[in-house]
Amino acid sequence: MIIDEMEKKLRPPEIALKPYPAKMITLANGEVMVVREVHRNEAAVLLETISPLIGVKKDFYDIVAARMYAEVLGWHLYRVANEFVLVGAINGEIVGLVTSRCVDENIGMSLHTLTVKRGLRIGAQLFAAKMEHHLELLEQKEVWIVAESPNGFKRFLIEYELDSAEDRYPGVQHELGGVPTCILTRTLYDAVREQKVTGTRPVPAEILGTADVLKAPGEYPQIPGYKRSRK
């Protein structure tokens, strides 16, 4: 894209983020999920993955998918600063994704976690990978987190035993709308890391290669009868 002067003014200033090195996780059913960072030129397949879920009310998929669609589009069009997206893929098919961004060098702002394939704790692994990126690879001091669904509340806010942001920063609100905000500090992360974060690096080339070209899911357990027509 040719960036004219107006476009330059529209784009936020960016911090150069270190890349997230891919890893692989063997799931309970024996399938291997590759977790890797997505590049901006892959945004289309992410949007394709997310969009059918915008109509799913159950388990608050609608609000999570709608917000995530905007986050991925905003990232693709350079309208969100310092954002990154990680995906989980099995044989190249996207089974879940997470969005997040850095407010500055010290503070991470967790956005959303969306799981397509359910029952294998894929969302939990991807959320953990997001925290791993913020606190280990980007070496940030803390991550701000909110939950917009009971599942997110149970999986992340309770299981990680997060601190309340209100105690530390009275009146300061998370970007997602000021719902009660929690903080994952390095101390809290270190306390649960062994139980939450896993994965093997480097990923052997033949396995990493399966996730080179990402595919949107053909079916969604959340949408009975849905079949994606493959071009």
Binding site: A28, R121, A128, T198
Partner: peptide
Amino acid sequence: CTIEGICNSPDAKVV
């Protein structure tokens, strides 16, 4: 679920 996935893989203790 498989024995590899829930018991023997390096990720089993987290998964």
